[in-house]
Nucleic acid binder design. Structure first.
Lengths: 166, 166
DNA sequence: GATGGACATGAAAATCATGTTCAGATAGTT
DNA sequence: AACTATCTGAACATGATTTTCATGTCCATC
């Protein structure tokens, strides 16, 4: 796991140093297949015995985002959630409001529509952000009753210390 | 301007009291045709001689949002921007990154697409958030050179005290 | 027109994600 | 090994939003 064949978990940016912390953040992000917050990622690393400072996590995520290697969304509270971008190009996700699991959705219709917007409006350099949320099949039964109660034991959101919001 | 014929600047919610502050917030929001932050709205009211506490502005905006009378977007920094919803139904906007001006765009294609997502994914109760940004025709010339320099003298953003972010 | 209680206000403090500082540690080179 | 630009992280700073709570205000009732 050193040297060749990497490319995805190699370095944050060409020219950047490869440190224990950045490698750990990058690997955790690749291994974690869903969106995760900076703080949760930091906690995840700590639990795994690879302690990385929160500042470093934020810095690394910022650099990765700049390098175009992450997709970023915001949850209801405005918190940013990151995910490694599976392949090139712009992708959108449908995220379960209960368990937080995400799945990529085909968005060519929206992309094409967004591209055409500029022509009709006189706007240039049009960019778009699309966020889709719903309740996945696995969460639907429990969501019918207690509304958003299924989040309580989310398996993909280690140590979520949010409590008061809403 | 009292009693009949209102309906838009009347009360925040049915059953809520009509106070000087809530009326002022609601009227300012209706008069201001673009997205505006809570803090900017508060400043706007203060400038207009109708001082309203920041807490009350936030509370009123929260209630209006719950009542479905506002459209809300987030700017690059995560700050929430509010705008009175012109008519019933879900609408989306194309916002100029330079001057902040917005215009509603026709989104039936996206709406229809989003509605169909559930069927293919097994997700229920699918909701979507779409944010479009670009550079409007008026800002295009100045944006070519100094990038986002045209924001400096935005006429629709009174007293914008943001500085450090990014 | 007084009273009482439910609701509203706002100044201050709390919260919370994220950014910045800077002294010390480290990677990669010579 | 020595060197130095870069990286790290604890502590602190920031800034939007929320909560607290003492005080104010509306309104039905007497």
């Amino acid at each position: 796991m050193s040297g060749a064949a990497a490319g995805r978990t190699d370095t944050v940016e060409p020219g950047a140093r490869r440190t224990r912390q950045r490698t750990a953040v990058l690997q955790a992000l690749v291994g974690f297949r869903d969106f995760i917050s900076a703080q949760a990622l930091c906690a995840l690393l700590t639990e795994a015995g690879v302690s990385v400072g929160l500042s470093t996590v934020y810095r690394t995520l910022r650099d990765l985002e700049r390098a175009g290697r992450l997709d970023v969304v915001r949850d209801e509270t405005g918190e940013r959630l990151y995910r490694e971008r599976p392949e090139d190009g712009h992708r959108h996700y449908l995220i379960c409001r209960c368990c937080g699991r995400s799945r990529a959705v085909d968005t060519e219709v929206v992309e094409a529509w967004a591209d055409r917007i500029g022509e009709h409006t006189g706007f240039t350099d049009v960019e778009h952000t699309l966020e889709l949320t719903g309740v996945c099949a696995g969460c639907a039964p429990s969501a019918q009753q207690g509304e958003t109660s299924c989040r309580q034991e989310s398996p993909r959101r280690p140590s979520d210390p949010r409590r008061s919001p809403r």
